[in-house]
């Protein structure tokens, strides 16, 4: 503490300075911390493979998802049909890849979009209070009371002509309410914190405060929520598809595939378990990434911290004693805190 500058040997400063000509901002630091999380990087990797696979693999397949192989109706996986075929003789691999294309996009856009709406509405209501809060909460309660499935079913046919991306927006528009309530109450406790006050007295724009101070501090719940929403959106899309809205035949999504395969799950498991397996894999990857993001945003996260230290130590031999000095300094600072 106190005058650290004179404490440090004179030769340390120049070296440290040239090493870090410019300091990293929060965005860069979060990216760096995220990249250190191995499980999250595995999640990103698998997700990338899934995306590439879903879009590229169909070009190299013998069968398209619209072709019927009349010689193989409902056959188990073999050399020609790796994932087997369904009752009309369509190749399950081609179907799964096509379904994955749609579901990946729906899930990865819809999940975060739901959370974004929840975060914006919740944080604005909580931060501004007064009339804004009252109006937003009134809308929110209305949305909670009216059965969303009914509304979706009513609106969906009107949008039949448009692109299926409308459905993603619609699905998000009906899934944000509960999270928004939680975010609102968290914001109400955060808005009187001194760092928010400090920003206000600096003259920072309220919306900037929400994005810079409030949302990062509720990031944990937002990220967990987004992770869950990805799965939820994929499944509710399939629910709609089941009723004939959403993705329509001959187009296909993982949801419809799972719904179709469900009755045969015990007799012809390949029709159910391949699409279901991909959905689980997708959910798992998203969860890993979510965990990584949460740790990257949270400076107290044990995982990210331990990695920080090991990296610093790894630098030790290169930079010599100064780097170690920095490490011990950190430990001391933490000690002061613990008291």
């Amino acid at each position: 503490m106190t005058q650290l500058v004179p404490d440090v040997p004179a030769d340390v400063l120049p070296e440290e300075k040239q090493k870090k000509t410019r300091t990293l901002s929060r965005g860069a630091l979060v990216r760096r911390r995220f990249r250190r999380n191995r499980l999250a990087m595995v999640g990103v990797g698998i997700l990338a493979v899934l995306l590439v696979g879903a879009y590229v693999l169909p070009y190299f397949l013998k069968f398209s998802y619209t072709d019927n192989d009349w010689n193989a109706l409902g056959t188990a996986p073999d050399a020609t049909h790796w994932f087997g075929t369904n009752h009309p003789g369509v190749d399950m691999l081609a179907l799964t890849m096509r379904g994955l294309q749609k579901s990946l996009v729906i899930g990865l856009i819809g999940g975060p979009l739901t959370t974004l709406i929840a975060a914006l509405v919740g944080a604005s209501a909580g931060y501004f209070g007064g009339w804004i809060d009252r109006i937003l909460m009134w809308v929110l309660e209305l949305m909670l009371v009216v059965p969303s499935f009914l509304l979706l079913a009513l609106i969906a046919p009107r949008l039949a002509g448009g692109t299926w991306l409308y459905f993603v927006v619609l699905l998000s528009a009906f899934g944000w309410m509960i999270t928004a309530r939680v975010v609102r109450s968290m914001t109400q406790t955060l808005k009187d914190r001194e760092y928010v006050l400090a920003a206000r007295y600096m003259g920072v724009n309220p919306l900037v405060i929400i994005f810079r101070h409030i949302l990062p501090n509720v990031a944990s719940i937002l990220i967990v929520d987004a992770t869950i929403q990805v799965g939820a959106v994929v499944l509710s899309e399939s629910g709609l598809s089941y009723f004939g809205f959403g993705i329509q035949a001959p187009d296909i999504s993982l949801g419809t595939l799972i719904a179709d395969g469900q009755p045969d799950a015990t007799t012809s498991p390949w029709m159910f378990f391949f699409p279901a397996g991909f959905l689980v894999l997708m959910g798992l990857c998203v969860a890993f990434i979510g965990d990584g993001l949460r740790d990257a945003f949270d400076p107290t996260a044990a995982g990210a911290k331990a990695v920080v230290k090991s990296i610093k130590r790894a630098k030790g031999p290169i930079a010599g004693s100064p780097a170690q000095d920095v490490v011990s300094n950190t430990a001391r600072a933490e000690e002061g805190l613990a008291s």
Partner: peptide, 26 residues
């Protein structure tokens, strides 16, 4: 930023750390 940090007796490279890593006085 580094100018400010040295003004209050901290090191310029502290800019990359999070507040939790500092003690109350810092």
């Amino acid at each position: 930023v580094p100018e400010l940090l040295s003004l209050v007796g901290l090191l310029p490279e502290h800019a990359e750390r999070y507040p939790t890593e500092f003690s109350g006085g810092q």
